[in-house]
């Protein structure tokens, strides 16, 4: 008794077909080949994201090497910005980021909680959500102009750390709101229902269940905005940063909030474009300090986040 003829002819009926009923047919091989090609092509794209990052970092470090030293961080610029360090700019950036976060984080997180946990779906909520999304898409130079009009001129703050921080806060606020909402939204509805059914008020549910289970996501949103605030030049250049500011090297609190200040991102811009005969390594070294600043700030937040996430229980 011979085995029956293998199915439809298109499914391959080569000689090896008889050898093993489950051997791959031509069609199957074609499918597997396509899958393999897709896998390597997509993998290459994923690698292509990492590669430039590493190249940039390596390039920066190599070019910055001649000027990198502990002194570069703790000293003030010298020799008409051609030497010395970046201490005033580093502290200035720390001021700007901290103040803007102090303003934007509470407002953004609380607004996000309201929008996700309390707001009903009505015209007001929809208008707020639309405004938030559109604000997130506004270019930072437009935020800068708004900052000049609203804080420097109208509020009478003048060009100052306060005005610049508030401008940064306005810029980062919408994204903080959106990421907070998303983090809260990721907490399963079943938890809220369970609480409401025990007679919990909305606020009790938020405090005891929703926030503890979404805090790591909320922090992630904040971390990303720190990097953005530290790196963006446009919003601060009209509202509060200066080319040069004389401060004592190494002092932690050289500025008052109403002062103007230096900032790393703007310093990088000025030493590249405004200072003649600056050593070649100077802008690169400044960039390394800026990246290092963001890295340290983020690491702290990531450690905190990991601690909190370890407590997450579902």
């Amino acid at each position: 008794m011979s085995p029956p003829e293998a199915g439809p002819s298109t499914l391959g009926s080569g000689p090896d077909r008889a050898a093993n009923l489950f051997a791959a047919t031509d069609l199957t091989r074609r499918k597997l080949r396509a899958q393999r090609i897709a896998k390597y092509a997509f993998g290459a794209m994923a690698a292509a994201i990492v590669l430039p990052l590493l190249l940039i970092l390596a390039y920066l470090l190599v070019r910055a090497w001649p000027m990198l030293s502990w002194g570069f961080i703790t000293e003030v610029p010298a020799n008409f910005m051609r030497g010395g360090g970046v201490w005033p700019a580093l502290v200035g950036t720390l001021y700007l980021v901290t103040f803007s976060l102090l303003v934007a984080a509470p407002i953004g997180v609380l607004a996000g909680i309201y929008l996700n946990e309390f707001a009903r779906d009505n015209w007001f909520t929809r208008a707020v959500n639309l405004a938030v999304i559109n604000l997130a898409g506004v270019p930072s130079i437009v935020h800068a102009l708004f900052g000049v009009g609203a804080f420097v001129i109208f509020a009478g703050l003048g060009k100052s750390i306060l005005a610049a921080s508030l401008t940064l806060a306005i810029m980062t606020l919408p994204v903080i709101i959106v990421s907070t909402k998303e983090a809260l939204n990721a907490v399963p509805m079943a938890f809220r229902q369970a609480c409401w059914n025990l007679g919990a008020s909305r606020w009790q549910v938020i405090r005891t269940i929703v926030l503890p289970n979404s805090i790591s996501g909320i922090l992630t949103g904040l971390i990303l905005q720190v990097s953005r605030a530290a790196g963006d030049t446009a919003p601060i250049m009209f509202t509060g940063v200066v080319f040069y500011m004389a401060v004592e090297p190494g002092t932690l609190l050289p500025y008052s909030p109403t002062d103007q200040c230096m900032a790393l991102a703007y310093h990088l811009y000025t030493v590249t474009t405004q200072v003649q005969d600056a050593p070649e390594a100077l802008p690169y070294a400044t960039a390394v300090v800026l990246i290092g600043f963001v890295f340290v700030f983020n690491s702290a937040a990531i450690i905190l986040r990991t601690r909190l996430r370890a407590k997450k229980k579902w």
Partner: peptide, 17 residues
């Protein structure tokens, strides 16, 4: 107050985390 006296159990068990 109502839900304190009238509790509900759902289809899928929903213990809190």
């Amino acid at each position: 107050e109502l839900r304190k006296s009238v509790g509900m159990v759902f289809q899928r068990p929903n213990p809190l985390p």
